[in-house]
Design a protein around this nucleic acid. Sequence first.
DNA 1: AGATCGGCCTGGACGC
DNA 2: TGCGTCCAGGCCGATC
Length: 267
Amino acid sequence: MPELPEVESVRRQLAPRLLGRTIHGVDALPQSRFTGLDRAAGRRLGELHRRGKYLIATLDEGLELVAHLGMTGSFRFRGEHGWTGDPYLRASFQLDDATLDFRDVRRFGRLAIVDAGDYREIATLARLGPEPLSADFDAVRFHRALAASRMAVKPFLLTQRPVAGMGNIYADEALWRARINPRARRVGRSRAHDLWRAIREVLTEAIEREGTTFRDYRMVNGESGRNAGHLVVYGQVGRPCPRCGTPLVKTMLGGRGTTFCTRCQRR
DNA sequence: AGATCGGCCTGGACGC
DNA sequence: TGCGTCCAGGCCGATC
């Protein structure tokens, strides 16, 4: 599922293909998660940035194209790397030298043209926490954020407020690495610092492997990420914990499947 | 205001 | 075989 490392991998391949191109037109299925796309025609693309799991392309005339891949969204260039289109094609951008297709099986993806920096219609982006791999992500402030919340730590991470870009996979991986129970509502300073470090490590390693592919996630060149074989807890229920050998268990937490070690990650 | 929960969406795995 | 049920899960809006 596209979380921060997957979105970053997409950004790196997409950015040089968008820079300086003009969007001559957009064909999009009518769906509520696509907004303002008619404003894209004639706009020239600048740099492509990432905030958490959001891709943000600068456009001229003070506009931005915001894209979220949701669960199954992917960008591909028509006719490249064997991609010709399929029933899950939801939107297409005509550029100077190529057609950029947005494919999305489950339709959780989102595309929007907004006034630059005005994210009021994208609530999660408007309230997004600091970038985990930037200096803005500060261990002391992270601990304060955890202490101020009454939520269990894992669902709180998934709100994107204490830190940007965590999804179900890397939240489970980081909590295991920091030995924190996903249901913990109180996380001490030392453990919060461990989690701060674990988040940065887990995401950095996954970016180096260009993300985790189970089925749908693909980079712009159609290739899979190489991180799936390195996951320690996610999808590993029943396997022995690599640290202590206790079989990993899976429970529901905040409506999400959650895998952890009952011994290493005691409450 | 913060926390919680169901809905969105589809394909695939699984059980009978 | 075929049908029904459940699960995957990021985000959003309604509700507590």
